[in-house]
Design a protein around this nucleic acid. Structure first.
Lengths: 113, 113
DNA sequence: TCCAATACCTAAGTTATTGATGTATATTTG
DNA sequence: CAAATATACATCAATAACTTAGGTATTGGA
């Protein structure tokens, strides 16, 4: 499979964006959504996801409410006002990054896209 | 300033691409070229550059020849045949990564706020 | 003469990941 | 109905790529 190093730093952007899109989601749901959206290309591991979610919560970009499905805990995440701001910022940041990379990578692969 | 985490994993792609573009370059030259190409947005630190170059050499994607400019050593890097292959691969990998991210981030990349 | 630029380098610390492991409940299948 | 699989949370050691800070030495300009 291809380099996962590229993913570094994009996980939080992905999470925030999905939360804006879907209102509220729980962890496992996020991994499945990403899997489907990318046709299985991108698989978010739980070891990456949960720490990231916890960090977003600590930074007050998301908040949680837990529910019980039967006896099983399900922890729903949704954006805080601060989180709402952050989404746009993060996405723009990513776009800027891509544009910057194009300035370096495109010179001879130019003008498709 | 914006997140540098995004850069992770792109440095070698950048180096290889520049070497293909310019035939051969030395380390310091690469940092300056990147700086100019991105209008100062992206600054490659030497602590990142040199280890990356050494790794590329170890992996036989680049080779070196040193020259003396006056009394000062200058170490030129250029692509090996293996490196030539790797450039295209790396660039395509990056494009694939961006496309994959778009599948997640694009549904509504609206810019409000 | 001294500072900035050129040009190479290494190493400790930081950080976001992977991969392994753990726990427990719910559902499907043979 | 038992067993395997899926759902759902979590932590943690190891890894990889970086940053920051340091080091050496030459060259050019004010």
């Amino acid at each position: 499979m291809h380099s996962k190093e590229l993913l570094k730093g994009t996980l939080k952007t992905i999470i925030l964006k999905l939360l804006r899109e879907h209102g509220r989601m729980y962890g496992y749901e996020i991994t499945q959504k990403v899997r489907v959206l990318t046709s299985g290309e991108l698989v978010i591991t739980e070891g990456a996801l949960y720490p990231a979610l916890h960090k977003l919560e600590r930074d007050q970009l998301v908040r949680t409410e837990q529910e019980y499905i039967g006896r099983r805990v399900r922890r729903y995440y949704s954006l805080t006002p601060l989180g709402e701001q952050a989404v746009g910022q993060k996405v723009r940041e990513f776009d800027a990054f891509v544009q910057m990379m194009r300035q370096i990578l495109s010179p001879s692969t130019a003008t498709d896209d």
